[in-house]
Each structure stands twice: as structure tokens, then as C-alpha cells.
Design a protein around this nucleic acid. Sequence first.
DNA 1: CATATAATCGAGTAATTACTCATATTACCA
DNA 2: TGGTAATATGAGTAATTACTCGATTATATG
Lengths: 207, 207
Amino acid sequence: MTAALASLVSPRKLPRQRRAEATVAAILEAAAQLVAQRGLAAFNTNAVAERAGVSIGSLYQYFPGKDAIMAALIARQHARQVQSLLDALDTPPTAGLEGRVRALVRAAMHHHHDNALLASAIDHEEARLPVRDVLDQILEAAGPQLHVLMEELRAELPGLDPLAALRTLPPLLRAVVDAWANLVPPDLERAEKEGVRAVLGYLQAAR
Amino acid sequence: MTAALASLVSPRKLPRQRRAEATVAAILEAAAQLVAQRGLAAFNTNAVAERAGVSIGSLYQYFPGKDAIMAALIARQHARQVQSLLDALDTPPTAGLEGRVRALVRAAMHHHHDNALLASAIDHEEARLPVRDVLDQILEAAGPQLHVLMEELRAELPGLDPLAALRTLPPLLRAVVDAWANLVPPDLERAEKEGVRAVLGYLQAAR
DNA sequence: CATATAATCGAGTAATTACTCATATTACCA
DNA sequence: TGGTAATATGAGTAATTACTCGATTATATG
């Protein structure tokens, strides 16, 4: 069962030459762009291959099926999201907690415009595909880096569980930014204000 | 353009007899179940008609296309979500703010199990379909009821904008519950704890 | 009861889509 | 340089899907 699921999702063949790696990368990038720009419904293997500038046959050399492309895309985006969160928090300590949180929220808003559709698609597909182990690994890998960061903030944030925060904050922040930035017209000022309120409120919540 | 979009989404014909209303309701319920149980990919018009126990022809009597079904579903779920939020907050005042928030989080978790896939699908489709006006109407309609509620809490929550909270909190809460309840195995205790922390933190955030 | 209107039915169609496979091209190495 | 393994190609296919339309059945009304 697990093996059957894994075979849906694990690569069919590993790229052994440079151009093969480029092909795989192009496929993932094309998939990301399609979903981000035109939604899940536009995500089909023929369109991905065409946008990647690669034949449909090459696509199936490296991915056993459509779901495997989505699974790889999910892993890629999660790793990027966690990293950008850590980067944003890694501002000069002089900025203080609120300054850091504001940087975090701004980073989320910056990403939002290009990636809102992609992020929501990933949310949906995660529930269906056997990718949770991979995502947990990504989360745990960020543990040490996060811990150093949290040391600096420990005084201001007693009783905060850093790993729990790392699981809670990215979806939380994305949801809030989404709620305000997806309006027509988008209310970006409000999005920032509400994002800061939500994140700071969570971090500083009295126990 | 707006008219073209509206025609994708507004009903083709209004039901004038009881059985026609039942047909429309069955179609929406079937669509909701399909998405909730098997994801967006399983949402196709033939499957919806079959599960609704209705012919494909009848489906197209009332909906001009697949997107119109999704749009109607989005409106239905939003109205329900806002109402359940208001209901959950409408606990005896003796419960205090934290008690009310806990009731709110529990309600969200209860809904989560059946509706996580549906909710994330709606998130994604909202961005593509012209439904924002309808959703804003739903939000505004809840204004008065919410205001009464907020009167009672005003002392505890100075400087909170109730309408902003109504836009921010549902997605925020859903995201946090999602993040913890979608694990295998789900960590429901943690989901509740994190949900309460996030909502209470947002509400009580120092300005 | 008769007639009109509303509702339902479902086989059929044109278009789309996931995926295969036989063939051709490119890179590597003895 | 020749051989071979890796990579790329894309026309083709079986399956799925959104939607139409002509015919049938149910309901309301006078």
C-alpha cells in the first residue's frame, strides 16, 4: 500500500546527466507557473511539457504520473517557504520582535502576489497525496536554525514552543494575508496590519 | 466582461416547482460531498449528476456550466461558515472570553474532519471565479449580529475592529486547525491549543 | 379533462487528457 | 573512433469529460 502510493510519487528514473537535471527542473518550474497563473484546472501533463519546452515523452521518463509532479512541486514549495520564513526572521536583532514580525509579514505579502493560487492548490493536494513524511523532514531539518533564532527571543517569548510555532505560523500568516490581499482592490495596508496583529498576538499570547 | 463572467455563474433558470428546488439542492449537496470526500479532481459534472440521482440534462437546466456549480457551492459554504462562527461565539457570557474562543475552536475542529478538502478547494476556486461580491454581501449581512456580540466583549477587547476580525478570523482559524489536524495521526489536542492561542492572541493583541 | 408549461431524461458528440512506444539524437568512454 | 547507455522525441490511443438536444413525463390551471 505504502509502496503503491510511493510509486505514484517517487521518481521513475534519476537524472544522471546535466541536461536531464535541467529537464526535471524545467518541468517543475513549468508546473509551478501553470498552477500559479491559471489554477489547478490548467495543470495537465501536456501543458506542463509544452511550457517546459520538453516533449511529453521526456516528462514521463522522470515522473511516473501527474501526481508525482505535484508531489515534487509540493516538496519544493514547502522547503522554499520554510527557508523564506527563517530568512525573514533573521533580521538584525536591533529591529526588536515587532520589527522582525513585520519583516516576516512583508515577505509573506511579497510572495503572495505570485503564489497565492499555487499555495492554495498545494493545500488541497497535500491532503490527497502521500507527502506528509517528506514535509515533516523539511520541518525538522529547520529545527536547529530556528532554535538559534529563538534563543535570542526567549526573553520576550517565554513558554513558546519553537517547533510548534514553525508548524502553526506559515499557514496562519498565509491565511491572513490571503484574506485581505485577495480583495478587489486588494487592501495591502490592512493585510500587513492584520498579519502583524495575528503573528505578534500568537507569539506573545499570555499562557 | 462582467456580464460574461456573471453568465458563467448565475443560474440558467430558476426552479419554479418544489421538485426543481430539490433537484438544485441535491446537485449542490452531491458536489459538496464529492469534493469533500475525493477532492477537486473528482468534481465533474457527470459524477455530480449521478451522485445527486439526477440526469446530466437536469443539471444543465439550472447551471450554465461546471463553474456555476462551484460558485453556488462557494456561496453556500461561506454563509454556513460565518453562521457557525457567530453561533459558536454566542455562548453564555459567563464563559468569559477564553471559554467562548474555545467553543469557537472546537466548532472549527468539528467541522474540519468532514470539510477540510472542501474548504481548501473553495479557497483555490475563489481566486478564479467572480464570487467576491457575493461573499462580501454575506460578510456584511452578519455585521449587525456580530456587533451585538462585540458590545459584550468591548471591555475586554478595546480597539478591535469587529468587521476586520470577521474577515481575518475564519481563515486564520481554519489554517491553524488544518496544520495540526491533518497530521497522521492528527494531533487534536495540539490543534485546539494552537487554535486558542492564535485566536485569543489576535483578539487580545496589544495595539 | 385538456392544454400548456415545467421538469426530467440520457444517448450522443466533440474536445481534452494521461500516458505509451517505437524511433532518433546526444553524451560518455574504452 | 566506434559502441553503448542515456536522453529526447511526438504521433498515437484509450479513456474521460463538459455539454447538447430531441423526446418523455409530471404538474398546474381553466
